[in-house]
Design a protein around this nucleic acid. Structure first.
Lengths: 248, 248
DNA sequence: CGATCAATTGAGCCGTCTCAATTTGGGTGG
DNA sequence: CCACCCAAATTGAGACGGCTCAATTGATCG
């Protein structure tokens, strides 16, 4: 795995364009500059290669700087489940923090680059930077909520709702990155989407085709264009009418 | 909500029978005695009442001392999903730590009692008791893993596997508490089990009946007796044969 | 320009849900 | 103590959503 020191100025936390959605969210400029102290390393992961895998020592967490990754879980019978897709600015490896060993595997969907934050450094610095403890609590809390949201999706939504919710989720995360929320490229295959959503790849494909036939989206391979955001939200079960929350 | 100070000696962390599976897990006797300092309060929650609900300030976490609870999530369209059942010795409210507001709701399945650990106290004491930070990281990590496991279950398992895995899960958690792993009473209804597993109550009922017909369990209302643990494990997909993990 | 992999589309089947009827059990008041 | 009531659980019949299997088309890449 290629590790290399961070280049002169370009990519410190203090000057990173992702700093407002990445780990330093909400930190003062002064505190962020302290982070430059221990984010000294970056790693490139070519498409298809893994950043870490099941059983690896969880000695660091990673901020995705560019590219896209998927997080995989394996069970005792060899089943595999994708628990999440990671976009730039998002954090990878939080789930290993509690155990010191990773229980998941992170694989690049395309050539990617991550910033390395060593757990040892965190523990060393956090006494002098109390906000860091809070940041980690917040990050882990976010991961818990994200995962609960996933449980909600898999437990209560029907296939068309899942696919619609998936598109909207990707859309809003890309929007937060400054990209268009209406036009984007999916970085994962139909099979990966299906696995993530608890559906087969055929079902995903059929639903995307149907959405296109109904003029909610335009889709050509992995290029997506959202034509009717409101209709997708309605399908996904995101009520615009606040009264509906009350009734049964 | 009835709050009352902890009685003289009986129920301090340092003398609690749950201390080896509850929050103090792995702490030294000395460190545990420090915890007595800030676990000064307990709360009783009658069956059907809630400990906290969506939007409440997350000012504390709770260790379940007796009884049983369920954790609920609500979505914008009024759908409800049970994300977990809590047994004695387990911690409630971890999911609110990141946001300072609870996004879930905790409801008692039967008359219950929890120990209150105030977040403010944690923040005050943890600088002097570094192991506490680790404990919290560990707890949040466990919650993440638990939730990921849930995603795995909902994403990959078929109904009979989910129900079998559910029974085994409850069984092993009760065993950790010192109760029988073969005979126990379910504290939740078929409807609650179904909601939790992403199935209907009828499907749950049918599968329990089928398991009974096949002599894997005996079941009479909520009383469960496991007759063939190995067979249930086989159904749940817990391979005894380690070779199976490798092949596809 | 063929080879290979990803995606689409169709046909038929199976598992789970829906709707409905019945049984069981527990609690309450006469 | 018994009769009644209500909620929980069981069981059945039928419908339907999503899966499986299979064939075809469409990209991508040496």
């Amino acid at each position: 795995m290629k590790r290399f020191p961070i280049s002169p100025e370009s990519s410190r936390c203090s000057s990173c364009i992702l700093s407002d959605i990445c780990l330093p969210v909400g930190m003062s400029q002064h505190d962020i500059s302290l982070m430059d102290e221990f984010v000294k390393e970056r790693v490139r992961i070519p498409k298809g290669k893994q950043l870490f895998s099941l059983g690896d020592e969880a000695e660091a967490i990673y901020g995705l700087r560019s590219g896209a990754m998927k997080i995989l879980l394996h069970d005792s019978s060899g089943q595999m489940q994708i628990t999440g897709f990671v976009l730039p600015g998002e954090i990878i490896g939080i789930d290993g923090l509690g155990n010191s060993k990773h229980l998941s595997q992170a694989v690049a969907l395309e050539d990617s680059e991550v910033c390395v934050i060593r757990v040892a450094d965190i523990d060393r610095i956090s006494p002098h930077l109390p906000i860091l403890q809070q940041q980690f609590r917040r990050l882990m809390g976010m991961e818990i909520n994200r995962s609960h949201q996933m449980v909600m999706t898999l437990g209560t939504l029907r296939s068309e709702q899942r696919v619609a919710a998936f598109l909207l989720n990707i859309s809003s995360r890309l929007a937060a990155l400054g990209y268009s929320s209406r036009d984007f490229i999916l970085r994962m295959s139909r099979e990966e989407i299906g696995n993530y959503l608890g559906l087969t790849l055929e079902t995903v494909s059929r639903l995307l085709s149907r959405f296109a036939r109904e003029h909610l989206i335009r889709i050509k391979q992995r290029e997506v264009q959202i034509l009717d955001m409101a209709a997708l939200q309605a399908i996904a079960g995101i009520d615009v009418d606040p009264d509906n929350h009350l009734g049964k």
